[in-house]
Simulated assay, not measured.
Amino acid sequence: MAPKAPLLNTLSLKGIEIAPSQVWGAIRIVPLLRRNVRGDLRLAKRDYNEDLTVVSLPDKTVYTSYVPHGLVLSWNEEGQPVAAKGSQLGTDGKRFHAGPASVRVLSRMAKREARNQLRFLPLHLAMEGFLSLFFSGPDIAWSEYSKQALSQGLSPRTEWSVSGQAIQGLADALRVFEIHEHQVGMLMFVSEALASAFITPTPEDYRLLHSSLLQDFYGELLYQYGIYGGTVPMQSQVDESKVETLADLRDAIATLRQDWADFQGLMASDLLQRPIESKRIYTAGPFTLQRFITDLQLKSENHIGEAIVRQDGQLEYLKTYRLSAGQARRAYLLSQLAAQGWNIERTALSMNETLENFIYRLEKAGFGYLINNLVREQARKARRRD
């Protein structure tokens, strides 16, 4: 049996070229090019037209969101070119009407449909993993927790985001920007903040999915950046005094392009080469579909995402979502609780916090329902005294 593709511990653009960016208002898109396209892995889009999608999960819970489309993965285990298959709707779930709204019910975030075909829900696969972090809550019935926390854990766990259509200038940017011949992806910045990264296996897949970036969801901070922020084009030019021949001009332009690529890669350094924690979702022949989260740092950008990796470690597919400060803070607090066995006093001590202040932080983060009312009231009184 062939070895499985590795689980990622960092993200690298090995084998992918960073091209000069294009700017429209607050939107900067950095094209990503792949010169060596193998063609044995393809992605295609499957559109859904429902107002709401409910996905049943193996642990008997459900994930509910607006899901505009799924992606269909097709592959060949012998390395031969394969055709993309995704437009056929087939029997992908069931459709219901709930008054004026329509609802689609799907089974699993990633579902095998044929021998070499897999349907998965882009970004929602990553978000479901984020929502399920520490979902079961405390394993020990600590007296500080509410009955709901002890019986149901964090259920229900919710987050909200905005559609790409709400980010000012994004629709125009996607419409007017040039798509390069070898382009397989992009880095998107809003007011110079990294919004997302997207990579596909082939240029044909990217052309098909380019406009779907408008249907993705993004953090509310990027929505605000789109309204109030701006983008300053990079100032860079050829030194004419050093150009005497066409060869000199070619060398100068090559240097300029490399400087652009290095700078744009540096702009994405909070995602690229950042430590990540990955989980294998599905093994598709020589490829592995996995989701990940960067190590949580409250003073840096934090991202979740999905990737498909080849056996040799080459990145074939990538889609990321930048967590808002609030989302990162909630995940961080839960991770600290889990690391201390959900003992609240021990967690507060490990974070150099008083118990009262730590409970206050939990309440501000939206987790007040995990703590019983008596403990919350005692914490409030202690804070007032202080």
Rank of each mutant, 00 (worst) to 15 (best):
38 R>Y: 07
244 E>K: 14
235 Q>A: 12
25 G>Q: 12
341 G>T: 11
158 T>P: 04
136 S>H: 08
30 V>R: 10
103 V>T: 11
2 A>P: 13
169 G>Y: 11
378 Q>W: 03
355 L>Q: 10
354 T>D: 08
216 D>W: 02
269 S>D: 11
380 R>K: 15
205 D>N: 15
325 A>K: 00
187 L>N: 07
246 L>W: 13
283 T>D: 09
145 Y>I: 03
189 F>Q: 01
99 G>P: 04
170 L>I: 10
197 A>S: 01
211 S>G: 13
261 A>V: 10
248 D>L: 10
242 K>N: 13
222 L>S: 02
302 N>S: 01
226 G>V: 12
193 A>N: 07
75 W>L: 06
313 G>A: 09
307 A>I: 05
320 T>G: 02
259 D>E: 13
97 H>W: 04
264 Q>G: 08
167 I>M: 14
73 L>W: 11
247 A>Y: 04
149 A>T: 00
344 I>A: 07
10 T>I: 10
50 E>V: 03
46 R>Q: 15
193 A>H: 13
361 R>P: 00
357 N>W: 04
345 E>W: 14
203 P>Y: 07
178 E>D: 14
92 D>N: 15
237 Q>D: 15
244 E>N: 09
224 Q>P: 01
169 G>E: 06
152 Q>N: 01
356 E>D: 10
373 N>M: 13
76 N>A: 15
331 A>K: 04
222 L>N: 04
308 I>K: 00
162 V>K: 06
335 S>W: 06
242 K>R: 15
81 P>E: 14
92 D>Q: 14
364 K>S: 07
337 L>N: 01
24 W>H: 12
204 E>M: 10
265 G>Q: 11
97 H>Y: 07
364 K>H: 01
248 D>Y: 14
280 R>L: 05
260 W>C: 09
19 A>C: 06
65 S>Y: 02
343 N>I: 11
126 A>I: 11
175 R>P: 07
106 L>V: 10
315 L>W: 04
124 H>W: 12
217 F>N: 07
296 L>A: 00
96 F>D: 01
318 L>T: 00
187 L>V: 10
